[in-house]
Write a protein that binds this DNA or RNA. Structure first.
Lengths: 229, 229
DNA sequence: CATTTCCTTGACCCGACGGTCAAGACGTGC
DNA sequence: GCACGTCTTGACCGTCGGGTCAAGGAAATG
């Protein structure tokens, strides 16, 4: 479906050399598209809308992108990349597994909250089935990642003994739920409070005992206060 | 938007008298539509597809429904109704609040799993913004409902002291996450195991202490064994 | 200054799809 | 057998929107 014959490849080929001007124009299109997708959804955004917003002719769109789907893909990939960067930055490798999960969770909430414009089109699968598949792979990776920490947590006796991958899915699901809630404006708490609440929820769901959970929460409060100081 | 002028109301008026044959035909259309929505999504399903599947002419669709959206609405409402019935049936009013939440959660998972065809179009908001609003109101109700039990749980000292509505959103989100996972085939556990896992996850996230959580889980096992006998 | 590559334009094409309509079949009561 | 409401048909219409194209300007390259 991506490149059935050479004729199609003529438009927006992989090895297009972009001048600085071209790079900037492409960036403009991406940004306007992102804004429009977030405002009215992927399907409801016409290519005509995008080029109009950018103030260029319709044909130009196809100079930079093969089609709407290709643009969307690019948007998703770069955003995902930034998200992972943020996550790894937030996770303290020296901390215990349960705390690491909590740090990842809180970082995700904050990132998604700050980038809510972009994320409006991620978890809610407002796209056709091809793209849906791709979006799914994203959360799969996220869950697998989380599962690693959880496994370590179980080994360390910090996380209760249950299927690690299933627990990880619970974490990912919880994060995306609260983030979605916040993003859609049904929850007007400040972002960092949403993050801390979500962290608490997840820690409680995973912890092997009260003591462990309390410990992870205390550590949380400490970090929070330290960050304030 | 629903009925701007009398002319529109001509099609599928509220006070249409349906013969038994008409009722059945309408039902056929609803069922085929549900199947197709589930398979390929709301937006990707053409009215032409629906009537073709039902083996009738296109014009007939507009005899029974004002448009695609109206059909969708009808589908959502009846399904939601069944879901709530199932939930209330599963909740033992004599049980303690935490257990009641768990019962509701497990019933939801089972119901959504059995009706997965229909539910494919619910939580994932594959529809335009008007319908999205309506779908949201559905989970709002669900969360509010859950929050009542949680409040009672906090008063009884069974649920940890945190914002009840937020906790309720966590429950609803967790349920819809695991249900979604199961529905999309990324989780091939038997349905009742998914339900019990989800119940456990939620109970742990809410419980005020290990003892309380263990108690609710033990009660769970007991019920399970009793049901088997 | 010639040539090539990049960038931009907007009119145009065409298929898809939601929705309409005139015409007729079937059944029921009078 | 007539009249009326229910039900069914499929051709037809209009619009919307993705995608194409021929043409030309602007900038780099040689």
């Amino acid at each position: 479906m991506s490149r059935p014959d050479p004729a199609t490849a003529a438009a927006a080929a992989d090895d297009r050399h972009l001048t600085p001007q071209g790079v900037e124009r492409k960036q403009q299109l991406l940004e306007h598209a992102a804004r429009l997708f977030a405002e009215r959804g992927y399907a409801e955004t016409r290519i005509a809308d995008i080029v109009k917003a950018a103030g260029v002719a319709k044909g130009l769109f196809y100079w930079y992108f093969e089609n709407k789907e290709a643009l969307f893909l690019e948007l998703v990939q770069t955003t995902r990349h930034h998200m992972r960067q943020q996550q790894t930055a937030a996770i303290d490798p020296a901390a215990n597994p349960l705390v690491r999960v909590r740090q990842g969770v809180e970082a995700s909430i904050v990132f998604m909250g700050e980038q809510r414009r972009l994320y409006s089109m991620f978890d809610l699968e407002t796209v056709d089935s091809d793209l849906r598949e791709m979006l799914r792979r994203g959360s799969d990776v996220h869950a697998l990642d989380t599962a690693r920490h959880i496994r370590a947590g179980i080994d360390a006796g910090l996380v209760r003994d249950d299927d690690p991958l299933m627990l990880a899915w619970g974490v990912v699901g919880t994060v995306s739920s609260y983030s979605h809630l916040h993003r859609t404006g049904r929850l007007d708490w400040p972002l960092d409070e949403v993050a801390r609440f979500t962290g608490r929820f997840v820690v409680r769901a995973l912890a092997s005992s009260d003591a462990v959970a309390l410990d992870a929460e205390r550590e949380d409060r400490d970090r929070f206060l330290r960050a304030r100081a």
